[in-house]
Amino acid sequence: MIFLINLARVVFAPLIEPIRAATGASDATLGLLATLVWAGSAVPRLPTGLLLTRVSRVRAIFASGVVLTLGTAFTALTTSPTPLLVGAFVMGTASGVYFTAANPLISELFPESPGRALGQHGVASQLAAVAAPGIVTAALAVGDWRTTLVSLAVAAALMTALFTLVARRTDVPDAGQRDTDFLAAVRTQWPIVLTAVATLGLTTMVWNGLFNFYVTYLGTVDIAARAGRTLLQVMFAAGVPAFYLSGRLADRLPAVPYMLAILAAFTGCILFLPAVSGFWPLAALSGVTGYVIHSIFPAVDTYLLGSLPDHHRASAYSAYGAGMMLLQAPGSLVVGLLRDAGVPFATIFQWMGGGLVALLAVLLVLHADGRLPETARA
């Protein structure tokens, strides 16, 4: 299920150039397209947190599969830019519902090692990102950009049905039944929620702008589109071992120093990128960047879900998810607008890196002063 959910979020990265060729859309429009997928992932997270105080995690996950099926089918049938943007937004909402319900459920199914379980779940998610460029390339060989979305809609319908059958035969823990007061959970856990939002939200805003325009950027440094998709695939592929290893490390290492170390490494990758040229050096940097950025997702999830009490877990996590995604979503739109304004990619990356340096400095000062929470409040 997570494979298809995440594929719907990342599939527009390798589809940007085919959509541009078919529709003549500008960088700003294409940036908005990618942004709306992630904005769609942000918007339902708070409502889903409220919903989970009344319905089970399983029902919410089923609903996400239905939304994904219908949203992808609608997007595949669009004939003009506005419906395409609407469809991308709806596709994104499926992931917002899914992650808000599924990640707390996974941590409750494996309470002794939430980092390991979340890391394995992340591996499945990342395999979709790895496969996305290849899936798009194969679809373009037999059809056009719509072929990918039609295939995704059919697969989502089948997987939703399969998930329903499996869920009926699985004993689900009742920990979530105690999470009935959304506002109380958020008021109590706001220090750890705000720390996670600031750390991951701004970092992934940069990441969102980078990977959605990565193939376009590589074209400006004399890397052909097909080779660019390969490098994007390398970047995503590095996330597979990152999720696997980082989930285990998150169970063992102090949470805040580990997250800040990952943030520092990613900042270095962004600042170094404009200085690298040539396929193989870029392939190496793509792999390092992909490994580093994907390491932070299980680290932050474990930081939250590994310490939030049962009666706050889903509600507080949904507040984090909404805040983080709202910060992340504009990344592609910002890059698109800057490109339409004539700003070179090298300058954009320098600005991005400078912003991350400032974020890292603030977090380090707060951590040294003991003002960043190490765990949730009991």
Results as ranks from 00 to 15, higher is better:
178 R>T: 15
236 F>W: 14
184 A>T: 10
202 L>G: 06
181 D>F: 04
235 M>A: 09
196 A>N: 05
216 T>P: 01
207 W>V: 10
249 L>W: 07
248 R>H: 04
172 V>A: 04
198 A>Q: 01
174 D>G: 08
250 A>C: 03
235 M>H: 07
223 I>P: 11
256 V>Y: 06
241 P>A: 04
240 V>F: 02
256 V>M: 09
202 L>P: 08
201 G>C: 09
234 V>K: 03
224 A>D: 14
187 R>Y: 00
207 W>L: 07
229 R>N: 15
226 R>H: 12
208 N>M: 12
220 T>H: 14
248 R>M: 06
195 T>S: 12
198 A>Y: 02
242 A>Y: 02
168 R>E: 11
236 F>E: 10
218 L>P: 12
217 Y>S: 09
174 D>P: 00
203 T>H: 10
233 Q>W: 03
235 M>D: 09
254 P>E: 15
206 V>M: 08
174 D>V: 07
187 R>V: 06
184 A>K: 03
200 L>A: 07
252 R>Q: 14
236 F>A: 14
252 R>G: 12
201 G>N: 09
247 G>N: 05
213 F>D: 13
198 A>D: 07
247 G>C: 03
225 A>I: 10
201 G>W: 04
248 R>I: 03
200 L>T: 08
238 A>P: 05
201 G>K: 02
213 F>G: 13
169 R>M: 11
219 G>H: 00
188 T>W: 02
184 A>H: 06
242 A>N: 06
234 V>T: 11
191 P>L: 01
213 F>N: 14
210 L>M: 12
187 R>H: 09
216 T>D: 15
230 T>W: 11
238 A>C: 09
219 G>R: 02
167 A>I: 08
191 P>H: 00
245 L>D: 11
192 I>P: 01
207 W>F: 15
172 V>T: 11
179 D>H: 04
224 A>V: 13
184 A>Y: 02
192 I>Y: 01
205 M>V: 01
194 L>G: 10
255 A>N: 09
246 S>L: 07
248 R>N: 11
245 L>E: 12
178 R>H: 12
202 L>R: 03
219 G>K: 04
208 N>L: 10
183 L>Q: 09
218 L>I: 05
171 D>A: 15
